[in-house]
Simulated scan of single mutants.
Amino acid sequence: MKKQFIKLFDLSGKTAIVTGGAGILGSHFCMGLADAGANVAVVDINIEKANELARTIEKDYGVKTLAVYCDLTSEQSVKEMVDSVVSEFKTIDILHNNAAGKSSNLEAFFAPFEEYELNQWKEIMSTNLDGMFLVAKYVGKVMKQQKNGGSIIQTASIYGVLAPDNRIYEGSFYLDRQINTPAIYSASKGGVVALTKYLSTYWAKDKIRVNTITPGGVESGQNEIFKQNYSNRIPLGRMAQADEMVGALIYLASDASSYVTGQNIMIDGGLSSW
């Protein structure tokens, strides 16, 4: 009997939430899920951008969408977001716990470790890890009550697994300034990987799979010096494009990965293999 394996990737009729859905990577993730057939809740603190993206996705892909405001640092806001999605779509099948943030105060965010302020550390942690906890808590509760299982995918970072090579930042500019990777970013993203592993075993009995995708460096406006410095560290010899993150997400969201949980898929051009 011939089996049609490609259908394992079909998400038709599923409901997906993407936090940080209007961002550089998030918008590609939302479009990828829609292209696979899923109805998509575009969750973002920038509701104008979320609404614009939701309208575009409906027009281009013919699925149902919902733009939802959410402040991930507020438990009440997270609860209201999940309630809104359930009210609109009735079920939640896929969560892409994707949102992360930088500070509005870039001087404080990129400060040397010896001078790093505790309030800045807590501000980033409240979005990058506390927010992941809150969204997983409320969505996981819904999935458990539905008794149909589900897939949760969380976005980490290469610097949650590896230490940054600070040499690549010499002469590099991004966000109109000299940058680095602060310790809070690495610590918060490392926490995402650990949270994934914990939840993968905690919810396994409920058929809720939990996995991580870990992007390497993605081109998003860095100067040529940075791109060259970074590319020199990559076996494939270049930075990633945003849409190259999407395939792994579709795999983990779909039945193609029905026996995969607790894993961290590195989408890093081979950097972690050196």
Results as ranks from 00 to 15, higher is better:
residue 2 K to N: 11
residue 2 K to G: 05
residue 2 K to W: 03
residue 6 I to A: 13
residue 13 G to H: 04
residue 16 A to R: 03
residue 18 V to W: 07
residue 18 V to G: 03
residue 22 A to S: 08
residue 25 L to Y: 11
residue 25 L to R: 04
residue 32 G to K: 06
residue 34 A to W: 00
residue 35 D to M: 13
residue 36 A to Q: 08
residue 38 A to M: 10
residue 41 A to E: 06
residue 45 I to G: 13
residue 46 N to G: 08
residue 49 K to M: 15
residue 50 A to C: 09
residue 51 N to K: 15
residue 52 E to F: 06
residue 55 R to D: 14
residue 60 D to E: 15
residue 61 Y to F: 15
residue 65 T to M: 05
residue 67 A to L: 06
residue 69 Y to N: 11
residue 70 C to V: 10
residue 76 Q to M: 10
residue 76 Q to K: 15
residue 78 V to Q: 08
residue 79 K to V: 14
residue 88 E to A: 14
residue 88 E to W: 02
residue 88 E to H: 14
residue 93 D to T: 07
residue 97 N to V: 11
residue 97 N to Q: 11
residue 98 N to Q: 10
residue 101 G to W: 08
residue 105 N to H: 13
residue 105 N to G: 11
residue 106 L to Q: 12
residue 109 F to L: 08
residue 111 A to N: 10
residue 115 E to M: 08
residue 115 E to S: 12
residue 116 Y to S: 02
residue 117 E to G: 09
residue 117 E to A: 14
residue 122 K to N: 13
residue 130 D to R: 04
residue 132 M to R: 01
residue 144 K to A: 12
residue 146 Q to P: 04
residue 149 G to A: 10
residue 152 I to G: 03
residue 155 T to M: 09
residue 156 A to I: 09
residue 156 A to C: 13
residue 157 S to T: 07
residue 157 S to M: 09
residue 157 S to R: 05
residue 157 S to I: 07
residue 157 S to W: 01
residue 158 I to D: 03
residue 158 I to G: 00
residue 164 P to W: 08
residue 170 E to L: 11
residue 172 S to A: 15
residue 176 D to I: 03
residue 177 R to D: 03
residue 178 Q to T: 14
residue 179 I to V: 15
residue 182 P to T: 01
residue 185 Y to E: 00
residue 190 G to A: 00
residue 192 V to T: 05
residue 201 T to Y: 03
residue 210 V to E: 07
residue 212 T to H: 02
residue 216 G to V: 08
residue 220 S to L: 12
residue 221 G to D: 05
residue 221 G to M: 11
residue 227 K to N: 13
residue 230 Y to A: 08
residue 232 N to P: 01
residue 233 R to E: 14
residue 236 L to Q: 14
residue 236 L to I: 15
residue 242 A to Y: 00
residue 247 G to A: 05
residue 253 A to V: 03
residue 253 A to T: 01
residue 254 S to L: 09
residue 257 S to M: 06
residue 258 S to I: 05
residue 259 Y to E: 06
residue 266 M to I: 14
residue 267 I to F: 02
residue 267 I to M: 12
residue 271 L to S: 09
residue 274 W to R: 15
